[in-house]
Design a protein around this nucleic acid. Structure first.
Lengths: 244, 244
DNA sequence: AGCTCATGTAAGGAGCGTTAACATGGCACG
DNA sequence: CGTGCCATGTTAACGCTCCTTACATGAGCT
């Protein structure tokens, strides 16, 4: 009975049993192979092992299929970010680092979803549900920024929204320039995750949220330094994250 | 007279006279309208007012046309960045700010080129010239970062390459998330330019390169603070591309 | 005048989107 | 337990656009 849930493979009867799911998976697979603009409705049908007319029972057109992928992506994204943030435990600094890594991790491991979400040029105006899902995902980032900012003395707090937008921008920039390892991208002298982590750390130092650790406890000069953030621990450089 | 150089309009004889240029402009126009994946070779021919077979005399296929647009874009981009940087005059901090603004300005005013350069998924491996042009443009950014970094005491210098990549990432992130005001994007509480400027400033502060708001605003708080740089007419919709 | 490039015209083939008409079989309901 | 409905898929067909090539023709240059 499990074959009825498989998108491909096993024999199936006249009815597919789970075509909608299969089409979504087909879209994900095809986006992974050829980019969000590189596949067609007919392709998805073929990939799902079904005739070209079948998808019309489930999606009005190709855009609706992609929008569905993007929607699922945002839901997964929100969950991944929320899990990484974990309400700021054990402390906001550490949790924020995790958040940044989770962002990139999602972009990398769920590349096709990420593409559908941010590169497919879906008209948000026509998909209010999609916009809401995106806003919810961004809300996690924003909530984290608010928490972080609240650690600062009242007079020096930057707008949390701005901080969230900066982090989002840098994460998205890193992800889209270097995140996916498809052939055409540029080579990096370091893993994208570390690049982002270092960037976020420098940024947070700029806000005064993290000590510049100028006390130089050790040789490691800064958030950069190749071995800086490798140990499986969390975020060694930059000293204590407490910033009480 | 001039009609032989026009892409459209005026009467022309059997020979177009400048079809290659006209095709490039057509591509730019079509990318502006429908995105880098949203136009076809035949479209470009139609737009230029020639038959569908004519473009083959000038470009092997659609990809070569887009690559040409991207190549020109990189050249323009490099020039714009170099001009903004102006070899670090009057001082590297100020010049770096200009550089960031020039980046966003390019992304906004030359949106189609920017799309061709960064969102068209052109295989760089097959276009060495394109890669070189891109590297040259990035070289401006990197050179500026090197200059900036050289202001720091020797022991604390972060790798210039990393700094350049961070700035690039943030600029690209801002540009691609909020830069173009096409219908589907998200609204921002501030102009994208200011968002980027503030982000870069915070980042540079994090490096210790800029003292909290040295020559920026008068009010004390920081790079944010809504009075920063907002002449009222700074963000026109920019819907129609000039290019004609 | 003649050469050569640039462009037009024509035509074939392929793929896609879309719709209409027909087939199948799971399931609700008697 | 039988039966009929209807959601789901299939087949077939139309129209459109695109890509590509082969051949014809206009226009400038020497």
């Amino acid at each position: 009975m499990s074959w009825s849930k498989d998108g491909r493979g096993g024999p199936r009867g006249y009815h597919h049993g789970n075509l909608k799911e299969a089409l979504v998976r087909a879209a994900v697979e095809l986006i992974a192979q050829k980019g969000p603009a590189g596949f067609t409705f007919a392709d998805a049908a073929r990939w799902a092992g079904v005739s070209a007319a079948a998808p019309y029972r489930h999606f009005r057109d190709r855009d609706e299929l992609i929008a569905d992928v993007a929607l699922r992506g945002f839901v997964m994204f929100e969950a991944a970010l929320a899990k990484a943030w974990d309400e700021g435990r054990p402390d906001p600094g550490v949790a924020f680092e995790r958040l940044g890594r989770a962002y990139l991790d999602f972009a990398r491991t769920e590349g096709p979803y990420y593409s559908a979400m941010f590169e497919a040029a879906i008209p948000l105006d026509a998909n209010p549900g999609l916009r809401e899902a995106g806003d919810r995902a961004f809300g996690v980032l924003r909530g984290a920024a608010e928490r972080l900012v609240s650690l600062m003395p009242t007079g020096q707090r930057p707008p949390a929204m701005m901080v969230a937008l900066h982090i989002w921008s840098m994460a998205h920039g890193v992800a889209s320039l270097f995140g996916r390892s498809d052939g055409g991208r540029r080579a990096l002298p370091m893993p994208a995750e570390d690049l982002l982590e270092a960037g976020v750390l420098v940024y947070l130092q700029g806000l005064g949220l993290v000590r510049p650790h100028k006390a130089k406890d050790e040789p490691p000069p800064g958030p950069w330094s190749p071995g800086g953030a490798k140990p499986p621990g969390s975020v060694p450089p930059a000293g204590s994250r407490r910033t009480s």
